[in-house]
Amino acid sequence: MQHKATVTSLINGVLHPKNVVAQLVELGVSHYVTLPDSETAHMYKALMAEPSITLVPVSREGEAIPVAAGLFVAGQNPVVSIQNAGLYEAGDALRGLALGIGLPLVMFIGYRGHNRMGDTPDTAAKYLEPFLHMWRVDYFVVESDDDLDRVPVAFERAAKTNQPFAVAIGTEYAKESSEELGGE
């Protein structure tokens, strides 16, 4: 018998970038160190409209954690935003310059391929949670605005433990109009 996998997303609800940005502002985030990916494109636009947070685009994901470590040492409050595939590329930086130094850093990880069914054809999704477990990085999954109360908890946990904490973004950010982003 042949089984045809159904990969339709089971995620309900929408994740609005402006709501995430509002939380980052409230939490006093100073820098958003990122390499954009397709799922977070709209978040990038929302951040460009937020003057209190400095965007730091990097050329490769492995740079993001070291840049954030330097910012933290200088008294800033950075976050990192990279895709799951990029997190794998950044593995040694995570080891040496986050876990290895006890860096309280919240990392937003794009959960590419996530569909809530477990079985996904995208290995970037398949390996994310095992990867985080293996590296002993605690995490929450955020799939919609309803989950955003987990974000402040992630910051509290990172600060309390002096360890990185991941927020896996399990859906594509919603597109918002220029009016919603404060544009004309």
Binding site: G70, G75, L97
Partner: peptide, 10 residues
């Protein structure tokens, strides 16, 4: 990369 972060932060 660490140096860049420090330079931006201070």
């Amino acid at each position: 990369s660490v140096a860049l972060g420090i330079a931006l932060g201070d």
